[in-house]
Design a protein around this nucleic acid. Structure first.
Lengths: 198, 198, 198, 198
DNA sequence: AATGAATGAGAATTCATTCAT
DNA sequence: AATGAATGAATTCTCATTCAT
């Protein structure tokens, strides 16, 4: 990684910590600069403004998440198994990065400008992936076809985000993954193609 | 309604509009006061500070929502029917009050202090009601008992919030209620007690 | 005392307490009104404004102080004895009314407008009295005549105010009157007509 | 002096002028900034808040006063001579800096927080010095030992502060130093060890 | 490229005073 | 005479951003 690259990452790491602790509005460039051990002015060499820095976080993070997700999905057959894996990895990854999780869930996801940012674009491949898996499942005949695939995705992401948000607001107590099995079970039944005569 | 009561409501209505348009941080007391046709100082006669005003919104609104929900549930038998009604009314109500919906979904629900506010308390009866219906369904033998009732609630609320949030971020285009049937269908199958031999 | 008179006094008493605790600027009409069990508006029926209320305090208090001082001086002969009594009574009176003492020493005495207020006028008889005693002492041949009587008064009041101010700023700990004897002794020697050949 | 140092002093000088004219409460940061030719925000780069700026004044000034006092006392023998010099210099210095004198006498000295500020600490060496001189005088046998040295200091400072306060409240008319001789004469006799048989 | 001093617009909150009831 | 709701001016402090060094 080039020297510039390193310093950029340094700033982003500091930003994640600060933004996730205080939220976007209550975080200051000054504090981020201090955490990153650079001068305030330096941050403006790497990012246009505060919001740009803010939305640069999920871009990097989402790319990384997506790449690792792909690895985890390697060798897994069957849409249902893939969904299971996705659910597990989603909870696992964000439990391991609670600060980022907070920034993502409580700040970015509800930001009015989110849909217009590069960040949103970086998110795309991920949501696209889910759709693909759903369609794969429909092809396999294990996922019901009478329901809009977007609605099915809403169900999956809605459940995960809801669990996560609760966990964050309650102070990150307890093990997120402990809820994994029930969540998967519930989702599976919900979206599964009912067996004939069922 | 007493005169004080009226003016208080006037301020809250203005606050809903302003907060929902700009978010908490970007809204100013000055603008709310103008909208409410009162002096800035007057707002502080009714509310301790900006945050207090902010969190006073869902208290009133949630109480009203809950009361009307109860009416809608009158005469409905069967947990599944009640859930169907709840889903419908939830979407209907927030579609009718998009400004409040935005304030609720994008601001309050993710506010770090939300869990410590009176507002959170006002929310209680509503979430409690859902649990009751779920348990009722388990008693009737139509909702699976092997899954934690909280997880079931996560599924329901998660889906609704996700649909709603998308709708809001996309600019409130289209008819929310159009998604009602599929949502209910998906939820129903997910939480339903699988028929024997199914 | 007429009913109006009573209520007026009620307000003044509340004002003394509040002003002396918080100082002029940090005291609010609202708090005084509450303490006095009247509405804020009522205060403006009795006093022109906040400053008027403020300066009404020493007027009453000084008159009372002066009247009682006169009583204490009754039957005392000799300027030195009178000065001794004055010093004692000054410290005694303000130790007994520490709240008023604080308002007087830390607020009024240094107020830029003090010299232009009715309050200042009420103070007059008292400072005048001291001058008289000093002149009486000079007539008796016990107080030096080569020093301006105003300077002599400065010495007396300066010492008393300094002792008092220290005591107030230090939290009113200890017995003010314990310092009475030394203070008098020091003052006496300072202003006394040196004996011939001394 | 470094550039930062210079600007800091610029702000303090402006603050002295403004505070002394209007008092603490009636002075605004805005006016001070204007006088100092800096932006309001700049003041907060140098001082924590308004009060911090306020109490920074006497720190600098008192140190300077003390240093110059020491120079003036050089080569002077005898406690009485030193006290004479102290009285003279005290009046001289504050007559020359009437704005600072006003801030000191009418604002700081009676501020409830004064005793808890750094400013109070800076005052220490000065009051300590007086005590030393008094003890020196007692050692020389020219100052009475039967009186608490603190009371003796009260007498000296009380007289000076009283003279000064009057002068300030009366609009700084006349020559303060004109009163110097009588003040010293009065003090000297007051604290002097009475000659035997006197 | 990095710095960090300087900026100044911006906003919440307070509170003396008024006046309709 | 008493009330207390309403007013709105006034002020401190914050902080993203700029720019000279």
């Amino acid at each position: 990684m080039s020297k510039k690259r390193v310093k950029r990452q340094l700033i982003i790491d500091a930003a994640i910590e600060v933004f996730s602790r205080n939220g976007f509005q209550n975080s200051t460039i000054s504090e981020i600069a201090q955490k990153a051990n650079v001068a305030e002015g330096t941050i403006y060499q790497y990012f246009t403004n505060k919001e740009d820095l803010f939305f640069s976080i999920p871009i990097d993070k989402t790319k990384q998440f997506y790449k690792e997700l792909e690895l985890h999905l390697q060798g897994i057959h069957g849409a249902m198994n893939k969904i299971r894996k996705f659910v597990w990895y989603y909870l696992y990854h964000l439990q391991e990065n609670p600060e980022y999780a907070r920034a993502l869930m409580l700040e970015m996801r509800v930001n009015r400008n989110f849909a217009n940012t590069r960040a949103f674009g970086a998110y795309r491949p991920l949501t696209q992936k889910i759709l693909e898996i759903i369609e794969e499942g429909q092809g396999e005949g294990v996922i019901r076809k009478d329901i809009n695939i977007y609605m099915i995705r809403h169900l999956i992401l809605g459940l995960l985000e809801h669990i996560l948000t609760r966990w964050l607001l309650k102070g990150e107590k307890g093990d997120l993954l402990a809820q994994y099995k029930e969540a998967v079970e519930l989702l599976s039944q919900g979206i599964r193609l009912p067996e004939k005569g069922g």
